[in-house]
Design a protein around this nucleic acid. Structure first.
Lengths: 205, 205
DNA sequence: AAATGGTTTAACCAAATAGTTAAATTTTAT
DNA sequence: ATAAAATTTAACTATTTGGTTAAACCATTT
């Protein structure tokens, strides 16, 4: 009875616009007016729905975070083999980032501004690499993969997924004459290339 | 006769302060007053030495860029073997970034805001991966390394160097209980681990 | 020591921007 | 239909911020 009486896709429009603008321009690079324009409403409405810029940013940040949580969390805690996990993480991660180009930089910037925040969010949701770390240690013991520190391996995998998207504007120019389609295909192919590259490096034959 | 009469390390103090603040907080995240405070001078002096915020930012950006140019350019165009180059690039790059933690994010942010700029700077200075690309193609033909697209290989190498530093605030927490020394050591060890990891993946045995 | 010219400062200004208010409008409930 | 509640707007305020100005300050030259 209390909530959303009528046209109230307004809140949705706002949050959608805020995502677009915040994720592209960051907190300090964003003006409330930008968001209002993007949502095609009056600036005062932003303050009506979200009391302050910080509050609105908060909502956007949480959205960006939870966008990636479920799949990754599921993979991390599954019973699949280490090689399958590497394949799945690369595929899911690269795929999700391709659909949300600006999120890597947005998140990187935010973890620099406020490192605790994302970490605490991760803990709340139960995203932790301990299980994967243990699994890697076991596989090393079993002689299936070479002796490598689990942290090295995991961070390598993450690097290979995230960086090519965060650095896209430059990389696309340098390596692909700024051809958007080509770079898109390049990223697409990395869904398979990255796990291949990683597994190739660690697998004991 | 015209320049620097007396205490004029002021300009140096300004540029040094500007580096610190800009590189940490980005263009829009930085206030002229922040820089003035950091340099312990009056805000008006900033405008006396550098007419505008943009001009000052420009100087800082170029500095951050040229910091990395000489060594990398030298390695790229040297006559060393592909494996030596991979080792040298990783070592130099990771080393330089460790000493300048905030530069990766600063540059990533800037290439998103203004992609042309860095690209044109690179061209002016003659940094281009063509020679490395050709060398990789030759090594593939010779059967020394597996069949991989040169772009994939180069971007993989870059990813492995840059991302662990850009993502440091989070990675350090997640994997090292936020222990600064441990992470420093971890990065240090990557100078050898990364080329090993890459070469291990592509070398034909 | 007086003039000169670069350097530094305090006090401003104008524009941008986050946030507020009160009134008008629209929807829902009675 | 009318009242009540939620939504939307225009106009406003206070603060922040990049940039300017005019005067004071200092070191060198004459």
């Amino acid at each position: 009875m209390i909530q959303e009486k009528y046209s109230s896709d307004t809140e949705n429009r706002i949050i959608k616009a805020a995502r677009k603008v915040f994720i592209k321009n960051g907190l300090s690079g964003t003006r409330m007016q930008n968001i209002a324009n993007e949502a095609k409403i009056n600036k005062a409405l932003l303050h009506y729905y979200f009391r302050s810029k910080e509050k609105l940013f908060d909502a956007v940040f949480k959205y960006a975070f939870f966008k990636f949580v479920p799949k990754i969390e599921e993979i991390l805690n599954s019973e699949k083999s280490i090689f399958e996990k590497i394949e799945l993480i690369a595929e899911q991660y690269i795929g999700a980032l391709m659909r949300n180009q600006f999120i890597p930089l947005f998140v990187l910037h935010e973890i620099n501004r406020n490192p605790k925040r994302l970490y605490e969010l991760m803990q709340q949701v139960g995203i932790t690499p301990v299980k994967l770390v243990e699994q890697i240690q076991q596989e090393i013991k079993k002689g299936n993969i070479i002796n490598i520190r689990p942290e090295q391996l995991i961070i390598n995998l993450l690097s290979l997924c995230v960086f090519p998207i965060a650095g896209r504007p430059l990389l696309q120019r340098v390596f692909f004459h700024n051809d958007k389609r080509q770079y898109q295909q390049f990223l697409e192919s990395r869904k398979k290339e990255v796990p291949q590259f990683v597994i190739n490096s660690i697998k004991v034959k």
